[in-house]
């Protein structure tokens, strides 16, 4: 099922704690936004769009976690099939764009060439990338006084396979820090300060989903940017067609 050494297991108390901490932020924002209209006596003061984006972020985290749990416990069959990552990334970018816009973060989609499909689980891959994306956009927005705020959703080829992930100016993000963060998930309040504040639950959920698909999130570079990405194997099926 899973590969690697001691991942943040789906269903573990650590991951649940991390998710509970993460969910406080969007839910608090929604609650305060709802209150703003009442406090001011002007319901137009309540930013319905902000409520919508925060709800979407919270629901994505919960949905991604549940899918990870279902894949892990085999309630959902892990059907690996040829998946076009380029078109899937367009979907992911579309879903993230409104959220990013609200946070004032530029979202760039950068695909490094024309690649064939990879072997993956379509829903799992999308859920993992969305979870990663929501997490990094929010983290980018919390970085003090950084202008412009920018993250890249990238897909490119390496000698090890095709790599999909998210990148930005995270010079302090290194492989050892990511490994430490995985160890600290649910135990530390800010396990990965190299990226941002908060419990980083979305990153751990994304990693857990990738692991259930025999991959994992790793620190990687793409065109002068540093980020978290997973290596995916090309589908051999279509190479002979």
């Amino acid at each position: 099922m899973a590969i690697g050494d001691d991942p943040v297991r789906v269903g573990s108390d650590d991951l649940l704690l991390s998710i509970a901490e993460q969910l406080k932020v969007p839910l608090t924002t929604i609650a305060r936004q709802a209150e703003l209209g009442q406090l001011t006596g002007d319901l137009r003061m309540t930013d319905v769009g902000a409520i919508g984006t925060q709800a979407a972020a919270a629901l994505t985290l919960v949905d991604s976690y549940l899918l990870g749990l279902q894949l892990w416990s085999e309630q959902v069959e892990l059907v690996m099939e040829p998946v076009s990552v380029s078109s899937l990334l367009v979907d992911v970018a579309h879903e993230l764009s409104r959220f990013a816009q609200y946070y004032g973060v530029e979202l760039e989609l950068r695909v490094g060439g024309r690649y064939g499909p990879v072997m993956s689980h379509q829903r799992g891959l999308k859920a993992a990338l969305l979870s990663l994306g929501f997490s990094l956009v929010e983290a980018e927005a919390s970085r003090p006084e950084r202008r412009p705020r920018h993250v890249t959703l990238g897909f490119h080829r390496t000698p090890h396979g095709l790599v999909a992930g998210m990148y930005g100016e995270y010079e302090e993000l290194r492989a050892d820090r990511w490994r430490t963060a995985l160890d600290l998930a649910g135990k530390a309040r800010q396990p990965l300060t190299a990226i941002g504040t908060g419990s980083a639950a979305g990153l751990f959920v994304a990693d857990a989903i990738f692991r259930s698909m025999n991959s994992r999130l790793r620190v990687g570079r793409y065109q002068h940017e540093q980020g978290l990405a997973a290596t995916l194997q090309p589908s051999r099926q279509l190479q002979f067609v």
Binding site: V25, T29, Q33, L36, T40, D47, Q54, S142, P144, E145
Partner: peptide
């Protein structure tokens, strides 16, 4: 306040009752 959406909410509430708010996301700022 690191969360910019939450900060915007607080800022609007305090401005409504007449306060002036300067928002920053981190310690150095």
């Amino acid at each position: 306040e690191p969360n910019t959406l939450l900060a915007a909410t607080y800022t609007r509430a305090f401005a409504h009752v007449g306060h002036h708010v300067v928002h920053v996301a981190g310690g150095q700022a």
